[in-house]
Simulated assay, not measured.
Amino acid sequence: MAAINRDPRTAPHATRNDTLLALGSAAHAVVVALVTDPARRPDALGWTLLLAAQLPLVWRRRRPLLALTAVVVLLLPYHSLDYNHTAPTPAAYIALYTVAATCRPLFTVLSSGTALALAVSVMLIVNQKQAVDLLRISGWAIAVIFVGIDVRYYRQYVAAIVERAERAERTREEEARRRVAEERLRIARDLHDLLAHSITLIGVRTSVAAHVLHADPDRLDRAAVAAALDDIAETCRTARGELRTTLEVLRDHGTPDSRGPLPDLHGLDGLAEAARTAGAKVELTVAAADVPPAVGAAAYRIVQEALTNAVRHGGRDDLGIRVGVHAGEGALRVTVTDDGTGGGGGHEGGSPSGGGSGFGLVGMRERARSVGGTLDAGPLPGQGFEVSAVLPLGGTT
């Protein structure tokens, strides 16, 4: 079955196999010529033509039409001299089959019909009785031709099935790679949102503790230092917990979509409180219920990143931030506005204060696009910065 399914032109060891086939055909021709019809046993010229007709079979796969032509050219004088007409039959059938199995059907019918017509014409001139016998057995030649054509169609059918299977496999591999890339991007966004927010808060609270220590060493406010250190410790514990949840996704060998619990709008109070402990005045307004989990998680991460940028780049000690989350008209609208002077990290190539890398704004836009929403961010007239997102409530859950 492997030999039938495979294209003969690409088969391994083709020349060796065809050489053995030619030798076998030659041996058969010699035996038939010696055993049957002694009256028409070939002489020296006949043996030369008979054996020479076997040689084209060696390159029948590479040049099927040329091989058939060579066989016909050698056998026409052989038959015209009325030598044994049965001996060269296998070589002719092999050449006909090769043309039928490798060439287009119409071309095969035309070329094979021409060869048979020439053979019958020669036989009619030489021996009409033999010509009638050739016409009687020409059905075998026609059968060989159509067997070759059927094999050709079968090989094309098998090749099409294999190609579809390979295409389906490539599609599955591409889908798997796409899922892996999406998951890696999601984890990268989560790590960025988590670490940027936590590290910013730790940095602000450390600065507060350092300021208290250096402002008036003789009148050290131990309570303020202790409160700042407690805030730092609490932020570290929260970050460690969220980081552990994120990393568990990487270690999970279950379903591809297995994930930790998504953050939602209920966590906005914690974000606002964390920003307040960093010195900002945060006004939070939430008017939304029954928000899809993916939309709630996107809103949470957008607010988290916007607060982080505002605290980091606000440029004021009395920074004011207004956070609004409102549901209506089929969408969740999120706005984070500050009155700072640092631009809120709104420039993708870096903040005006020189601290931003641009990934925060890119990440917020990706969050919005992941649920089919949009996000705009930019400085306000005069001073301040605003992040505004519209997230459809029919987004991916």
Rank of each mutant, 00 (worst) to 15 (best):
L201C: 14
L265V: 14
L332V: 08
S111K: 04
R152F: 00
L116P: 01
R167C: 08
N84A: 01
P8G: 05
L34E: 08
A226Q: 11
T89Y: 13
R104A: 13
Y300A: 06
L55E: 01
R61H: 14
Y153P: 03
D37W: 09
G324S: 14
L319W: 00
T114A: 15
K281C: 11
A389W: 11
A289S: 15
T48E: 02
G330L: 07
V151C: 08
P381C: 10
D193C: 12
V35C: 09
R244L: 04
V371C: 00
A272S: 10
L20K: 04
R219S: 14
L361F: 05
P88L: 07
S80H: 12
E234W: 02
A131G: 06
V144R: 00
G342P: 03
G340Y: 00
R367P: 01
A215S: 15
A228F: 08
L68R: 00
L361R: 13
F146Y: 12
W140M: 13
D318N: 07
V147K: 02
L319A: 04
A22R: 02
S121G: 11
A239Y: 02
L243V: 05
N127A: 09
T102C: 12
G350N: 08
L21Q: 02
G314E: 00
L307E: 04
T200A: 12
Y97G: 13
A53D: 05
T89W: 09
R167W: 08
L284P: 02
E273Y: 06
P8K: 04
Y154P: 00
I199E: 00
Y157D: 03
L185M: 09
S112R: 00
R179T: 03
A299Y: 07
A39V: 14
E386Q: 12
G279Q: 05
L118A: 15
V282R: 04
V212F: 11
V122E: 03
R333D: 07
D252S: 13
T397K: 11
A331G: 03
E182K: 09
V109K: 00
V144T: 13
K129A: 15
S258R: 13
L271M: 07
G260H: 11
A227N: 14
L262D: 06
A227F: 06
A377E: 07
A92N: 04
Q54A: 14
T86C: 04
I125G: 14
H197R: 11
E169T: 15
L116Y: 03
M123K: 13
G344D: 05
A141T: 12
S80R: 13
S198N: 07
P105Y: 03
V204F: 09
S198F: 10
V390D: 12
V204I: 14
A239V: 11
E386Y: 05
A278Q: 01
S370I: 06
W59M: 05
L268I: 10
R222P: 03
G340W: 02
R222W: 07
